[in-house]
């Protein structure tokens, strides 16, 4: 029964992520990359242990991260409540080892650390519950 619930829950989360993905695409078409990133980070990470959901959400966040062109202006619009979760996704990006992804994540990481401090890194490393 519990397994069935979990699967059911996962389906619902996947649907939500798909919906989020469409919204992000339309925001990117309107040249609103920061809004797209905010949308991607909202409700992240999905509250489940299902790996499929985690990767689906990562694909969406990755799309939004890669669309950021001007890192400086990103932080004039991004509210501090997103900093901790963004840091967690940056580390997920760095763990992929993919060259363009790592370049982009490092660029944002530098600016984010300047703004949110080492405490933000510590929080993202120490948080073992909200795994992205």
């Amino acid at each position: 029964m519990a397994e069935f619930m979990e699967a059911d829950n996962a389906e619902a989360i996947i649907t939500r992520i798909e919906h989020k993905s469409r919204k992000i695409e339309s925001l990117l078409k309107q040249h609103k990359p920061v809004e797209a990133l905010k949308t991607a980070l909202e409700g992240s990470p999905p509250n489940t242990k299902d790996e499929r959901c985690k990767s689906a959400n990562w694909i969406v966040v990755h799309r939004a991260i890669m669309a950021i062109k001007d890192v400086d202006s990103l932080f004039s619009y991004l509210d501090p409540e997103y900093y901790d979760i963004l840091m967690k996704y940056l580390y997920r990006g760095l763990s992929t080892g993919d060259r363009p992804t790592c370049d982009q994540c490092l660029r944002i990481h530098e600016k984010l650390t300047e703004r949110a401090g080492l405490g933000c890194i510590l929080r993202s490393l120490a948080d073992t519950v909200n795994i992205v």
């Binding site: 401090g117 080492l118 405490g119 933000c120 510590l122 120490a126």
Partner: peptide, 28 residues
């Protein structure tokens, strides 16, 4: 304090405590 650069304040010790978490930008 927590090792994740947070400090916690707890009021009204008893059955219904109220707590605040404060995150800061530096080392724990």
């Amino acid at each position: 304090v927590g090792h994740n650069s947070m400090i916690y304040f707890v009021d009204d010790v008893g059955p219904s405590p109220s707590a605040q978490s404060v995150a800061f930008r530096d080392l724990p």
